[in-house]
Design a protein around this nucleic acid. Structure first.
Lengths: 222, 222
DNA sequence: CCAGGCGCGGTGACTTCGTCACAGACCGCT
DNA sequence: AGCGGTCTGTGACGAAGTCACCGCGCCTGG
């Protein structure tokens, strides 16, 4: 915990424009949080007692199965809220998903009472929350489309591009890439080798360099 | 459209216990609907302008991809609300999913204004909506677990059991079963043949009879 | 310093699953 | 009976997941 940055609301345009009266509980009830990378935000069975708004940093939400297989569902960045904790909070439902910070994260936490107060008070706040719900739902449906129907080649190419985010270098292991797309390490290794043979990437230990993004983008569309 | 059954609220225990004052818009604003089997409830791009509460019948929500591949996401029964239309309504987001009635459906439709009124007025209504959100989110995560990591054998066995719902006979084609689990018809045909050889089911044109549920349940757990 | 441990990547063999092409069986209709 | 359409069966093949095992580089403790 630390002092809240008074400007944190700028990360949430939808909330910043709320009328003074509605916004009051946000200012008075929110607690600033700082978490290092690797902090667990949500895990099945763990109690969660706050509504979390991400100000800076990134959170990865993923599923694990009994055999240790992993698949990334979506990521939260600045301006996002953690729907998983929210739903767990309100519906006291247990999910088989995990949420973990990937980088140091600054966030604001609203106690349940404050959250309920805002939900009752502000249509704008409600629509902000619903918008976030809708976005996460769309994320999950995109994941389903991918794992059910898309080829490894296209899923891997697409993921490399989004993870690179405009840059040309990634620090990531084949195992981690496999977890990103819900596949196996060997499969990813072989596919990366194929990309390398075609000159699309070059590989190093724990490193993937994008050398030619155009054909990767083409492959991602298939 | 038809006259609302005055007892329809009984299908929604969470709403029926709302205080008189909060419940008023439900009674005054809701419109009864009757739809035959095969009616489209939601499709991408179609405008939707009501919040839908299912009183009787069933709705199937599924995804299609460009090649015509299909996968069932979840089903809605009596007491459920259509989160898809709700989110599309509130977040004006486009989903790649379809919702269609499988049997004749009786439902109540709340205009957006009434829905917003209830959301503003009743904490109980809000928590009902959140509970439904949470349940659908859990459904989608279960689908992801299945398509990403579970074998065809276990997915098919599990689906046969839930579709039969305690009965021992299903009227369904192999193609439809494939769409249920997001696989291919040939794969389902071969797996069903294997089940038949083991004496777990017996097969007919458009028909699957469960002859021995115990090993199916065992296989579903793997 | 270097020895072992460990994380990472590479590879071959095999199984499972999805795709394609096609054939045959069954159904309802005229 | 003939016929078109739907449903199911099958073989061949490619794509993807699994298993077993290897070597390499890096790090760390003796």
């Amino acid at each position: 915990m630390s002092l809240p940055d008074p400007d944190w609301l700028k990360q949430f345009p939808a909330l910043a424009t709320m009328p003074e009266g509605e916004r009051a509980p946000l200012a008075s009830g929110a607690m600033a949080m700082n978490a290092p990378a690797g902090t667990t935000v949500y895990a099945p069975g763990e109690p969660c007692n706050a509504f979390i708004l991400v100000i800076s940093g990134g959170v990865r939400v993923y599923q694990l199965d009994a055999d240790g297989n992993e698949i990334v569902l979506y990521r939260l960045g600045p301006g996002s809220i953690c729907i998983l904790t929210t739903l767990a909070l309100l519906a006291s439902d247990a999910y088989s998903a995990f949420a973990i910070t990937e980088t140091p994260v600054q966030a604001m936490a609203l106690p349940v009472a404050t959250f309920n107060d805002l939900m009752a008070r502000s249509a704008q706040f409600r629509s902000f929350v619903f918008g976030a719900q809708a976005a996460r739902m769309a994320d999950l449906m995109a994941v389903i489309q991918n794992v059910a129907f898309a080829s490894i080649e296209s899923r891997l190419a697409a993921r490399l591009l989004t993870l690179a985010g405009g840059g040309h270098e990634l620090s990531i292991t084949h195992q981690q890439l496999a977890a990103e797309i819900g596949s196996a390490r060997e499969v990813v290794s072989r596919q990366l080798k194929a990309f390398e043979r075609r000159g699309w990437v070059s590989l190093g230990r724990g490193r993937v360099e994008l050398r030619n993004a155009a054909p990767l983008r083409a492959a991602a569309g298939r």
